[in-house]
Design a protein around this nucleic acid. Structure first.
Lengths: 158, 158
DNA sequence: TATTGTTATACTCTATAACTATA
DNA sequence: TATAGTTATAGAGTATAACAATA
């Protein structure tokens, strides 16, 4: 990004901080660095308290929001490989958070259904997500938070 | 984010697409989804052609931009654990891309120096990064690209 | 023949604790 | 006693190929 405006800006309030050099214009680098913060917050607000990993949380919330879903749709929505998803669903099922029912329409596919306990945990994680996002508001205004998500959606389009 | 503007918006151009529900206001989720795109681009433009992983690329570019660096500073800059970094440097050293010299000032620490070949690869990866970012410009204007990075920097502050 | 989901396997990535050598 | 870096080890995450059942 030689001619990119972003790379022209070189901050260095802290002299011990490294120069990013050409990295300053690379979106992927900044996504990874920002994820350090959000991963941290996730762990504190949801992961640790509810014993959920990020993908497990996403799975539960997606099913809660959409009702019973075929694994196929879940794997597409979250960009998970089929074997990966099978393993994740196994673990959540063993934990009693969901069950798998074969579809009557197409007996190859199945519906993943939240149990009572699964719904409880999913709702609890949804509730915990609000304070988690509020914790970002010391770095980002509400408008910036919304804008950031909007821009990320554009990048995520597959 | 019950009262968040972002969650109020529910797009569904594709009826097969799932509703994100409460996930729509969760920054970490969108970071992960956007990373699918950038990881893909990285693999295509840099990872595959130059045989570099994301962290290896970041390490080489940081050293190229800042000159010889102590592992301590690299691990802080990239949020890598010390053991993790040791392993990464080992691999890059075995590949002949860098060498480690003990500091004469403080003999506990060391300086990581790029070899000729290391500089060559680092420069090649810097060159490849420009077209990689250009590939995003069908989803994002230049201004949006810069804005996105700016917002991500705010989130990344540690 | 194609699709859904599973099993088996291996490889990458990350985290922790215990160690060394210097300060 | 603290810091820089290493070793050892285990765990989590992801990718691929081969397979079973159904369409």
């Amino acid at each position: 990004m030689a001619r990119d405006p972003a790379s022209a800006v070189e901050r260095s309030a802290d002299p011990s901080a490294l120069s990013l050099g050409p990295l300053s214009g690379v979106l992927g680098y900044h996504l990874a660095q920002a994820s350090v913060t959000t991963d941290d917050l996730f762990e504190r607000y949801i992961g640790q308290p509810l014993g959920l990993r990020k993908v497990e949380y996403s799975l539960l919330v997606l099913i809660l929001a959409n009702g019973p879903l075929a694994p196929k749709r879940l794997s597409k929505a979250l960009a998970l490989s089929a074997p990966n998803l099978t393993m994740l669903l196994d673990r959540l099922q063993q934990r009693g958070l969901l069950s798998r029912e074969r579809s009557q329409v197409d007996r190859r596919s199945q519906n993943v259904v939240l149990t009572e306990e699964g719904q409880r945990i999913a709702r609890a994680s949804v509730d915990a997500a609000s304070p988690m996002e509020w914790a970002l508001l010391d770095r980002l205004s509400r408008a910036e938070h919304a804008m950031l998500i909007e821009l990320l959606r554009k990048v995520a389009v597959r």
